[in-house]
């Protein structure tokens, strides 16, 4: 890390992190996120009525979600209206698609682990992360992926005997 990382006081640190921050996305992004939450809150309120609100003596299943839905609608509406004041959202950058790749390997793992065990998807995940997301060498990526899976097998299957689906 850079020499500036010797910063020890909290103020210096905060400043340093501030400087390293990615480009801000502006208030529109906050407003959009808040609008999504407004819609979510409204949907929750509708669903809550369908669940049955009950009475104060015998509260129904929908009473509490209704209160939360209302809270979400109110708080995020305020957020939409005051979005101008927020600059803490970040813009998506060209490397944001790497996040999608990373997430993809995880979802793949989740989808197939039940049928073919954790070893193969685990190795694939580790390999993709090492080689393509981490830009490690082919050699290190291959050895690393295999070593990780072996280590996990030893810990979770042999030592702890957890019932994680495994092929071997």
């Amino acid at each position: 890390m850079s020499a500036s990382h010797e910063a020890r006081t909290p103020e210096e640190l905060a400043e340093q992190w501030e400087a390293e921050k990615p480009p801000a996305a502006g208030p529109l992004s906050t407003a959009a996120a808040a609008a999504v939450v407004v819609l979510l809150g409204a949907a929750v309120m509708v669903a809550s009525f369908r669940l049955g609100v009950g009475s104060v003596q015998q509260p129904g299943a929908g009473l509490w979600p209704l209160m939360i839905g209302a809270f979400l609608v109110v708080s995020s509406t305020v957020l939409v209206l005051t979005a101008r004041r927020f600059d803490d959202a970040e813009r998506f950058v060209s490397s944001s698609w790497l996040v999608l790749v990373g997430l993809g390997t995880m979802v793949l793992f989740a989808l197939v682990v039940g049928t073919i065990g954790f070893e193969i998807p685990g190795a694939v995940l580790a390999f993709v992360w090492l080689r393509f997301l981490g830009k490690e060498s082919w050699r290190l990526s291959t050895i690393g992926a295999v070593a990780m899976v072996v280590a996990f097998y030893l810990i979770f299957v042999l030592a702890l005997q957890t019932p994680i689906p495994h092929l071997f």
Binding site: I116, W138, R139, T142, P163, P165, H166, L167, F168
Partner: peptide, 25 residues
């Protein structure tokens, strides 16, 4: 070399898959 290795291990994986040896599947 590593691509070939990858192909080999993928095939090996499939073989093991059908044999389902030792696993809990």
């Amino acid at each position: 070399t590593f691509r070939r290795l990858g192909a080999v291990s993928a095939t090996a994986g499939l073989v093991l898959l059908t044999a389902a040896c030792g696993g809990n599947l």
